[in-house]
Design a protein around this nucleic acid. Structure first.
Lengths: 224, 224
DNA sequence: TCAAAAGTGTTAGATTTACACCCATGA
DNA sequence: TCATGGGTGTAAATCTAACACTTTTGA
């Protein structure tokens, strides 16, 4: 297949922007880079695409390698391909964002990989073009969260309406009116009120809600 | 740099979804593939990313190679990376969509490259995953066209309001109320009415408008 | 004279926004 | 008893959607 050989091959990697939500803050998992070039710099977690896997598979593998979690919600951010983006060699990277419930991430595993949850608004300078990736991922995720019920991936299975509101505030970057927010939630039958009450976050206690995906599929009228 | 060598390299190509607008229809440039594998199949126009150029540069080069036009508006669609997407070798492709004014494309050059404008709703089966690329490009372009004034790239510098409306109808895939549409246009001061009249499309003649980018930058309140 | 496209306002309904107080409880 | 977060409704303003007729002119 000489046709291909007129051209040059490059390394292709994936980089993951893993979003979490905790203490009313949107967070991203970053760590100190463990390899040259750029050893010690803050960086996203990534890996190379192998010969026998698709880019999506590589991202999925990288995500579960880091978190131990499978079936993570994940979407492609795009390809980043400036010639000198990697100081070592020519590497093209495809970024993915992922949403996980912080509680699902085993603390021990997190420390082993030496990654940390950092507030989206306090991200330090990162290796290469990773800041750009984070910003684009945030923008895309924000957009998607308005029209698709993906935010629940960042919450525990049971959550209070205040938690849900704080999540949307953190992602959107602005405050939301409590009554208007709750009015909109009431219109969405797939966000179900349970009889359970959360007593951790307030003295009075707040009803816990759950997202019913089956009900959503039947009547997907999501808008926030 | 042995670290990189543990991993395998792949070819990276770009594929271009070039949108045009003519006869009230949204069109895409496709041609018969001139090389193996897949010779003779309908296909997007593409090319390989060279060692010394970014992916964006490769897309830009490919676009001007095909059209002879420089400074084409172009946005990345995403990376496509299934292992067997290319029947010959492992090739990852990054798709880009581009918007051009059909009139800017020299007919002779178009015939030389043996590409044709095909209605978006009549795209045949294309090589590899190119249909998927087209659909994703269309979706992204549609979204962007609602909130950013990129549609003018598909029109001549002077256009009638009916042309503009037909464009939005073709891209959005549904009819728009003429009066409501014109009302919204009137609110946008950067869409300027000229004193010129187009007599080609109607007996009565219609005023020609132009998009004033400088005025848009000063007050970017676009929404359609 | 008629066919074909250009141009023009109003109204009802839906959606969005702003806004303030009482409740239940644990400390 | 008081501080904290939970929970609730209404009214004004804005936005959206539906809708029909007159104008101009070339054939």
């Amino acid at each position: 297949m000489t046709f291909y050989n007129e051209h040059s091959k490059v390394w292709v990697s994936v980089d993951c922007i893993i979003f979490g939500f905790d203490e009313s803050k949107l967070k991203v998992l970053i760590g100190r880079r463990q390899m040259d070039p750029g050893r010690g710099e803050w960086s996203l977690y990534g890996g190379f695409v192998a010969a026998d896997e698709s880019i999506d598979e590589a991202a999925k593998r990288t995500l579960s390698e880091l978190t131990g979690i499978h079936n993570i919600f994940m979407r492609q951010v795009g390809a980043f391909g400036k010639v000198d983006r990697d100081p070592g060699e020519r590497v093209i990277s495809v970024a993915y964002y992922a949403l996980i419930n912080v509680k699902d991430y085993d603390e021990k595993l997190r420390r082993e990989h030496e990654v940390e949850w950092v507030n989206i608004n306090e991200i330090p300078q990162l290796y290469s073009d990773h800041n750009e990736m984070v910003m684009k991922a945030w923008k895309l995720m924000k957009q998607k969260m308005r029209t698709e019920p993906i935010g629940f991936r960042l919450l525990p299975p049971l959550f209070t309406l205040t938690q849900l509101q704080r999540l949307y505030e953190a992602v959107g970057g602005e405050e939301i009116d409590k009554r208007n927010f709750r009015k909109r939630i009431k219109d969405m039958d797939f966000i179900e009120k349970t009889e359970l009450i959360d007593k951790l976050s307030s003295k009075r206690g707040a009803f816990l809600y759950r997202f019913n995906n089956k009900a959503y599929k039947e009547d997907p009228n999501f808008k926030l």
